[in-house]
Design a protein around this nucleic acid. Structure first.
Length: 519
DNA sequence: AAAAAAC
């Protein structure tokens, strides 16, 4: 079976060939012929199975006929996260290089202006996260009754994220005559109900994933004391020990604050690290990811926003700074390494309180994970020692110093207990970034949240001048999860970083995918 | 014990 057997147009085939692919993955072989015939498809597949191309390629073929009208996109792809949406856009650019298509990416955290312009011009392909899409519609900038093909991607994840009501609303805005391509890794009852409601006689294409994680990933548990400084020290030792083998690594934390804390700590220890989590402003998110992909950053500290779907080829190591609470996340996280049949290594830092989560993970993958250097019974409670601490006065008692340091690493945020406004994203910080690094502010997208933040900053300056906490919070800080430290590098447009292994097929096909393809 | 997503 080759791509030329699937019925794709010459333009699409040529782009696929240029990208170096000849053999479709099971999901592609199963879905593409039906999608080309205009049938609804229910694809049950994980990310990394070549799922994206299984809708991008037939859509491109079908889009060759007809033209888009202003504000009336011809196709719509819904994605749960901004990064995934951007990644799908990259795929359209890559495989649509022989087409003249207008592609619009509607995601939060960036300016409306550019998105409006693209809608106005008429989008052949509209890729969106649900919130921003609905926002545009409510502003009257978008009509969905011209949509011919609707793609709902990662439906089960949308369910986890509470997007289903939004998805239903959007589905109801699009004519019945549309074609719907629906993808989900799992089929919980809510998702089945959704497919019954919105799909018409779908062809079911299922790629079963082996229950256990790929065998080319070496997995180890690493014992650690449970205090943050213990865990950071454990991690650093591990990173140093693996240095020779380590090309690049993603370090997963369970919480966004932990991402920030660990990131700052690693910087302090001169590790070449970036950070990625959902409360960072969009420019910083994009830039961190691009820099990591380009090899400008060796380590990426991330929340589970990076656990699924994101295509970062050739990560040599995954470290779980925290044991994931949901066993499934473990499989997704370590699946960021060992791609393309390469070998990968994953280390999971475990403390005494993690045992029940480890048990659940081992049950899910059907295997015991080996301990790297003895199990938790040999762990000693932490007392004193050096961590991130810069030099302190001699007299300072060690324990207190540690805690003090820990708070320092955590940043001033802890002090005032102030909480950042939810929708201001990283609020005033982007203003700081702008003042400090005008070059980036110029090249970066004009960010509406930045303008809001600026207003917010001015207002709080007027009303809360007395509060030193407040002022401190706005002070520039090197070790923040915000873009400051990378601002010296010009922002690159996402189209320029053309990873040639964006879709999980060809030589990037994980072993588990070859197992079954039921059509 | 979390994360994600509009402003």
């Amino acid at each position: 079976m080759t791509f030329s057997d699937l019925g794709l147009s010459p333009k699409v085939l040529s782009a696929v060939t240029d990208a170096g692919y000849t053999q479709p993955t099971p999901i592609q072989a199963g879905a593409i012929p039906h999608a080309l015939l205009g049938k609804d498809v229910l694809g049950i597949a994980q990310t990394g199975t070549g799922k994206t191309a299984s809708f991008v390629l037939p859509m491109l073929t079908r889009l060759e006929k007809g033209r888009a009208r202003a504000r009336m996109p011809r196709t719509l792809i819904l994605e749960p996260t901004r990064e995934l949406a951007a990644q799908v856009e990259e795929n359209f650019v890559k495989y649509g290089k022989n087409h003249k298509l207008n592609i619009a990416l509607l995601i939060g955290g960036v300016s409306f202006d550019e998105q409006d312009k693209k809608l106005e011009r008429g989008a052949d392909v509209l890729i969106a996260t649900p919130g921003r899409l609905l926002d545009h519609r409510e502003r009257g900038k978008l009509l969905l009754n011209g949509v011919e093909i609707l793609v709902i991607d990662e439906a089960d994840r949308m369910l986890d994220m509470g997007f289903i009501p939004d998805i239903e609303r959007i589905c109801e805005m699009i004519p019945f005559t549309r074609q719907t391509l629906f993808f989900s890794a799992t089929m919980p009852p809510e998702i089945t109900k959704l497919t019954e409601k919105f799909l018409h006689a779908p062809v079911r294409v299922e790629v079963s994933k082996a229950a256990s994680a790929a065998t080319n990933i070496t997995q180890r548990l690493v014992k650690s004391g449970s205090k943050p400084w213990d865990k950071r020290e454990t991690l650093r030792n591990l990173m140093k020990a693996e240095d020779a083998e380590l090309k690049n690594a993603i370090i997963f934390c369970n919480r966004k604050v932990e991402v920030s804390e660990l990131f700052r700590s690693l910087l302090k220890h001169d590790f070449d690290a970036g950070a990625l989590h959902g409360d960072m402003d969009q420019r910083a998110r994009m830039q961190m990811l691009a820099n990591f992909r380009d090899g400008k950053l060796r380590y990426l500290v991330a929340s589970d926003v990076a656990a699924r779907g994101l295509d970062i080829p050739d990560v040599s190591h995954v470290f779980n700074y925290d044991v994931p609470i949901h066993a499934e996340d473990y499989v997704h996280r370590i699946g960021r390494t060992g791609r393309a049949g390469r070998s990968g290594k994953s280390f999971t830092i475990a403390t005494k309180s993690d045992t029940k989560y480890i048990d659940a993970i081992e049950r899910l993958i059907g295997n015991k994970i080996e301990w790297h250097d003895g199990d938790l019974s040999t762990v000693v409670a932490s007392e004193g020692g050096e961590d991130d601490a810069p030099r302190r006065g001699k007299g300072a008692p060690r324990r207190a110093g540690r805690k003090d340091e820990d708070r320092k690493v955590r940043g001033e945020r802890k002090k005032g207990g102030e909480r950042r406004a939810r929708h201001g994203e990283e609020d005033a910080s982007s203003v700081v970034a702008e003042q400090e690094q005008p070059d980036v502010a110029q090249t970066a997208v004009a960010d509406i949240s930045e303008r809001r933040a600026r207003k917010e900053a001015i207002r709080s300056e007027n009303t809360e001048r007395k509060s030193s906490d407040r002022n401190e919070q706005r002070a520039p800080e090197r070790g923040d999860t915000r873009p400051q430290r990378d601002n010296s590098r010009p922002a690159r447009h996402r189209h320029q970083e053309d990873n040639d292994t964006t879709v999980g097929f060809g030589d990037d096909m994980p072993a588990f995918m070859r197992i079954v393809a039921k059509v």
